[in-house]
Design a protein around this nucleic acid. Sequence first.
DNA 1: TCCAGTTTGTTCCCGCGTTCACAAACTCCT
DNA 2: AGGAGTTTGTGAACGCGGGAACAAACTGGA
Lengths: 271, 271
Amino acid sequence: MTSARSNRNGSAPAEGAVGGASRTAPESAARTTAAPTPAAAAASTRTPERGIPEATVARLPIYLRALITLAERGIATCSSEELATAAGVNSAKLRKDLSYLGSYGTRGVGYDVEYLRYQIAREIGVTQDWPVVIVGIGNLGHALANYSGFTSRGFRIVALLDSDPARLGELVGEMRIRSTTELEAVVVEHDVAIGVIATPAPAAQEVCDRLVAAGVTSILNFAPTVLSVPAGVDVRKVDLSIELQILAYHEQRKAMNGPEGPALTRVVETA
Amino acid sequence: MTSARSNRNGSAPAEGAVGGASRTAPESAARTTAAPTPAAAAASTRTPERGIPEATVARLPIYLRALITLAERGIATCSSEELATAAGVNSAKLRKDLSYLGSYGTRGVGYDVEYLRYQIAREIGVTQDWPVVIVGIGNLGHALANYSGFTSRGFRIVALLDSDPARLGELVGEMRIRSTTELEAVVVEHDVAIGVIATPAPAAQEVCDRLVAAGVTSILNFAPTVLSVPAGVDVRKVDLSIELQILAYHEQRKAMNGPEGPALTRVVETA
DNA sequence: TCCAGTTTGTTCCCGCGTTCACAAACTCCT
DNA sequence: AGGAGTTTGTGAACGCGGGAACAAACTGGA
């Protein structure tokens, strides 16, 4: 385990004061005590202090995936330009992002794929597996349970929970669906920090409250509803219909610009 | 053909929307990388009319959903404060967002729920249904096909396509799985502008190319890979493992601050 | 050793988005 | 009618992120 997570259980579930996550909370990173994690092995002398911009954090997994792809092709070294192309971003942005982690490249040469891959994985925290529990095993829950991307990228599903008695015991992949009554026990037993909610919207808040009360501090929410959580708990949401609606907005504008609009734009047609 | 889309298929496809190439990946459109629409009409000299910030567009669907919830509860009027709480955002931000659409509120009173709901739906473009095609009917594709949020929020699934012969003809919901060989025909027949890719990563780019060539100009990508598209095509991606990795990063930091760190983060556990 | 070529890491600048704070506008009560 | 209370809409300040440009650092050849 070694997971430094402590038991913050027992706290009141309660709906947090503020809605939404505190992820963006600036929290002036005081941390005056000199050199936390002092003498970090041999590497760098000056730990740039842990303060990676949120936008960069969101891109690190993309870089990681690109690096894995490159490694599978047997490529040992790559330039920022190559990696940026593989990740679909600007090379300047890539270099700046990586600079927040430290100086892991070599000027005039580029980056060592395996080395950089490990460094990013370590920074994200996926060098070991995080236990994850999925609540709500409907169509989407099934898909998530079977999604190989979870288990292969630093996560391990430890339980599938559903409140429908008809589903209990059903096998999904290699895992059996268990009752939501076991939620607290599962979270405590496996020291689960990350929970995935794939229930219908009406049930999401209650499940969320129970997860948080049991000790979960990060939640990935697929239910189309706004979750209230206490400070210190991160929530990320994935809403499929919202994504489509954003696309629809732009489609509508294209259609409006088309007929009469100032369409002095370019037509770029690929093969 | 219900939508405002005109004939863009045969003759001049894609007209490269001014305001943006690809939403999530600003310059990911590797190919061609033609001059990013210099000048263009982006700078509408005046009339802030059609120029809603991207961040606001991403929130409009959230407001819409909150308004629908309020309407179902029989609430006819609400203040920006109430709506903001329901949507999980700051009230000032909400008001500024809505101000881009126009002045649909009444000072001293608030917003008429039904009226505002319609105005947002109209602005997004979901007062009528958009035809959508889903490619790749694996676990995730099944979930998407059965997701009621699509059909109830301005979208209509017109075809489910898969390349696996074993799956052809299978019923999903009320729809039959068809072969990807019919992709072009389906897109043209229903004038599909929005495509959803739920295939394995290796197949995603080819499917994407075919969709675009057939006339699709907006793509929602669930495959864990970077898509290259011509200018004028919007791509939004949903990557489940990336979302989890972002949570893992923050979890790791919490665990680091917890034990020894000065941790100003204050784990605030509300009463 | 020195020089040319290459690529990283960093600095500077600019534009977008968020937030505060306040004037404008509406309702209600006296 | 008028004033107090309420709420919207918006101008301005501010901080963050993106992009270009450049110095620093490394390789390889003469």
